[in-house]
Design a protein around this nucleic acid. Structure first.
Lengths: 333, 333
DNA sequence: TTGTAAGCGTTATCAG
DNA sequence: CTGATAACGCTTACAA
């Protein structure tokens, strides 16, 4: 590994332009106190030698890396790539580089990621991970890394949080449904290992059903369109209706497609609501009624909050994104 | 900004455990030549003080950062998030941290990203960007950063490339179509600013049409489901058939849905092929015939190639991923 | 086995 | 306005 070996250093630039390190540094950092001529000369040598400052050395000396750590459970979901998109846009605008950390749904893994983030020396972090709890964030925070936690309400000195409002909306939709229909059995589709958001909405679902005195079911499904589709092709052989609450668009689409392909009518026989809606809710046919939070906005907001937090000027430490329900063709209401 | 100020340093660990810096360093790096007792003592202090080495200082001293730069045009497309997923999985397995750089479709932007990558002091980079050309890569490479270029065949000492095979497949499909059908006019949907891959396949489309002596059209569409859908609702008012080649699933879906919603039959009246297929090709109804390359595999392969390149042991510097065509319900063939 | 000291490429605090 | 020189936190010969 000799990849960084022969970099041009500030020292060579100084020598080549007949000034000291300090002067070159001033030029690089656009500080005053440099004669236009000197500046020009130095800039010329910089260009000629193709000198690029080492971010590493700068960070070490300045005690500031302009790196932001981003922790996500996987890069493979549409709503997470939307989140990432929002984060990257603001990061670029504000001149930060993002370090990406992926946790993959296990507590142990998540903890080792926390260590990595600390070691990485980031100036701040945005964490979207269900495995970590208040203590873990406290630990991370104790290393003086300001954090914005997404989907987890943490109250602490150097931590800001963004939360999502799905439960209230879901309960409202369910009650509305119960009023008009007392035939279809409500079914919640539980995806294994999908974190607290799912758990919380599932609990809300159960509460709503029990309050309305409706018999409900919880199904375990795989987090895969193909397998869920296959499962429901089987299911619809002897169940000819239902009201389904799915975690993701792809799960919801699996049910809708399985129902349609089994000769059932959506939404007359089968109704499906998707919890985490994306633009695909609008593309599938029938279109999917879904709840939606603009994850790109969430990402952007997280970055803005983090920047304020790093500057000690974040006033409102908690921000709640309320989901929006859009009735489409997969439900009657 | 005092976020990194009060970090525990190796020096404090040394003092607290009554040894020298060097010994602590040896313990951290799991080097031999340390008495079990000493090691234990040091490890205890490390745990007690909550010491985490500074990746920055380590990188500077070792001339090696274990950071990989990843350059992408946007985080907002499904196939790019798939790519990212493949990269992250291997990166995690091999202990690399990823630095994410987003270029957003402009040459100037792309160049400034190259500078940032150099400054970032990454050990290597994976670049998926259409704006950059051989010279730009040569420049990046001249800073001793090994690169894997995706979707651009670059031949150079410290550069490896991964290319995509869409054209051959597209021509085959078109010819096949021309044989069976000489009514539907072939139409290529040009998305503005979508890079060389689109340009190349478009050229292949034109060649195939001309070779078959078929009249064709190139349409400009927005890179947006909603707008393309609206455009085609208009279009299908006075055009009642067509054979469309779309760049992405979402564009293809827009046409299929617009056709269906205009009372046209897919694939009898309107046929649509999607170039860059994703799992959504299977979810929409009718399903979309599409070409497909598993981008997650591409990402993983890119990381493996990069690691070999960094170790000077990459033999085959170019790897081509051939697309796979899957006929689904949006075409007859 | 352990310690000393010279880097790594910058910035920042002084004098001049 | 410019130049020494000491940090920044760590690694790594070289000595001991």
């Amino acid at each position: 590994m000799d990849n960084l070996k022969e970099r041009v250093t500030i020292y060579e630039v100084a020598k080549a332009s007949g000034v000291s390190l300090a002067t070159v540094s001033r030029v690089i950092n656009n500080q005053g106190n440099v004669t236009p001529q000197t500046r020009q000369r130095v800039e010329a040598t910089i260009a000629r030698l193709g000198y690029k400052p080492s971010g590493l050395a700068q960070a070490l000396a300045k005690n500031k890396s302009t790196n932001i750590g981003v922790v996500i459970p996987s890069a493979n979901y549409v709503y997470i790539s939307n989140l990432l998109h929002g984060i990257t846009e603001v990061a670029k605008e504000k001149g930060f580089v993002l370090s990406l950390f992926v946790t993959s749904h296990s507590k142990k893994d998540a903890l080792s990621v926390v260590d990595k983030v600390i070691t990485s020396h980031v100036d701040g972090a945005i964490v979207f991970d269900d495995e970590l709890d208040a203590d873990d964030f406290e630990k991370l925070s104790s290393y003086y890394v300001p954090i914005i936690v997404i989907n987890n309400n943490i109250q602490s000195e150097r931590i800001g949080s963004i939360t999502f409002g799905y439960e209230h909306n879901l309960v409202r939709i369910l009650n509305n449904h119960f009023e008009k229909d007392n035939v279809k059995r409500p079914v919640f589709l539980h995806v294994h290992n999908c974190g607290q958001l799912l758990t919380r909405t599932e609990a809300a679902f159960v509460r709503a059903c029990e309050a309305a005195n409706r018999e409900y079911r919880i199904f375990n499904v795989d987090d895969s369109y193909t397998r869920t589709y296959a499962d429901f092709i089987g299911y619809f052989k002897d169940h000819r209706n239902g009201y389904f609450v799915a975690y993701r668009d792809s799960i919801a689409a699996a049910i809708v497609n399985a129902a349609t392909d089994s000769g059932l009518k959506v939404p007359q026989d089968v109704e499906v609501v998707s919890l985490i809606g994306t633009k695909y809710a609008n593309i599938t046919r029938p279109t999917l009624s879904s709840m939606h939070i603009n994850m790109s906005d969430v990402g952007a907001r997280a970055m803005y909050m983090l920047i304020e937090l790093m500057n000690h000027e974040l006033k409102q430490k908690t921000y709640k994104f309320e989901s929006e329900y859009t009735k489409r063709d997969s439900t009657k209401e």
